[in-house]
């Protein structure tokens, strides 16, 4: 049976545990390298966590994830959500702490997305946020 490349998840941090097994299944079906699956799972977790923390309104509706791995060179992952504008590409890089005492907790998620995805794009259309993450198959 073909694996569905689209998943809708509730706007609830406590209910995101369905995402990793789904990505695993898509990765297995598409014969992805393990590193690629890890990077997609990491970036998706960070994207979803940021969207939910940025706009936790449950009336915002579910968040849609679409994976397109039809291209042999790259995998595209699109995360779409209604609600307040949220453009992760405009967030500044976190300040590097010199010591544990100075280190601030949090703020690493978007940095990890930038680092583990090959490219990240944002589009706002019809009051919806669309974040596209591109992953080269050879990393």
């Amino acid at each position: 049976m073909p694996i569905e490349r689209r998943l809708a998840v509730p706007r609830d941090l406590g209910r995101l545990d369905v995402v990793a097994p789904w990505v695993d299944a898509v990765a297995h079906a598409g014969d992805w390298p393990d590193k690629l699956s890890f990077a997609v799972q990491l970036c998706l977790e960070e994207a979803l966590a940021n969207i939910i923390e940025h706009d936790a309104d449950p009336d915002g509706g579910p968040i849609a994830i679409v994976i397109d791995d039809s291209d042999s060179r790259r995998v595209a992952v699109r995360v779409e959500s209604a609600g307040k504008p949220f453009d992760p590409t405009r967030y500044p890089e976190p300040v590097t702490a010199e010591s544990l005492v100075e280190a601030k907790i949090g703020g690493q998620g978007i940095h990890l997305m930038r680092s583990f995805a090959s490219a990240m794009r944002y589009e706002r259309r019809d009051k919806r946020n669309s974040i596209e993450l591109i992953f080269d198959r050879i990393q």
Partner: peptide
């Protein structure tokens, strides 16, 4: 087998507590 920023927060917060 997997680490994301929520795990990093936990490790960093705990290390700061121990060090303090």
């Amino acid at each position: 087998t997997f680490l994301a920023s929520m795990g990093i927060r936990l490790l960093l917060g705990s290390a700061k507590t121990v060090t303090s």
